[in-house]
């Protein structure tokens, strides 16, 4: 069973979300990295870009698959994790530290729409 930290929020498309001081940080879950296998490349979104809820903002690529990243909240992309260019494998190793991008959300209550750890666990178990 993959790790699902209790203090994070989740999307159905397997992104995790951490809120810190009005910014949200997004990565992919342990379950998602297990499904993908060895990650070889991360296509990052452009900093400064406006993104809609569930808008495509990047691609995570493994040897056998490529999976789109979706924005769990609408807002502006304020930062991306450039370190992933050289070490995409860090997503496999520490998925909850290897964040992908940060969003300044348009609306703060959007966080309420996301899943908590218990609800996300159900999503994973249902697969």
């Amino acid at each position: 069973m993959s790790e699902i930290p209790a203090d994070l929020k989740y999307s159905k498309s397997h992104e995790w979300v951490r809120e810190e001081g009005g910014m949200i940080t997004v990565g992919i879950t342990d379950h998602a990295q297990e499904l993908l296998g060895d990650i070889v490349f991360v296509e990052l979104p452009e900093v400064g870009g406006e993104i809609d809820l569930d808008g495509e903002c990047g691609v995570i690529e493994s040897v056998k698959a490529a999976s789109d990243l979706y924005a769990p909240m609408a807002g502006e992309i304020v930062e991306v994790n450039e370190a992933l260019a050289d070490s995409p494998e860090s997503i496999n190793e520490t998925p909850y530290d290897a964040w992908v991008f940060r969003i300044k959300p348009t609306s703060s209550d959007a966080l309420e729409q996301l899943l908590d750890a218990a609800a996300y666990t159900e999503v994973v178990e249902a697969e």
């Binding site: 060895d38 070889v40 690529e61 040897v63 995409p88 494998e89």
Partner: peptide, 10 residues
């Protein structure tokens, strides 16, 4: 023998 696909891509 089996080839390292991950190395080939990274």
């Amino acid at each position: 023998r089996r080839l390292d696909d991950v190395r080939a891509a990274r």
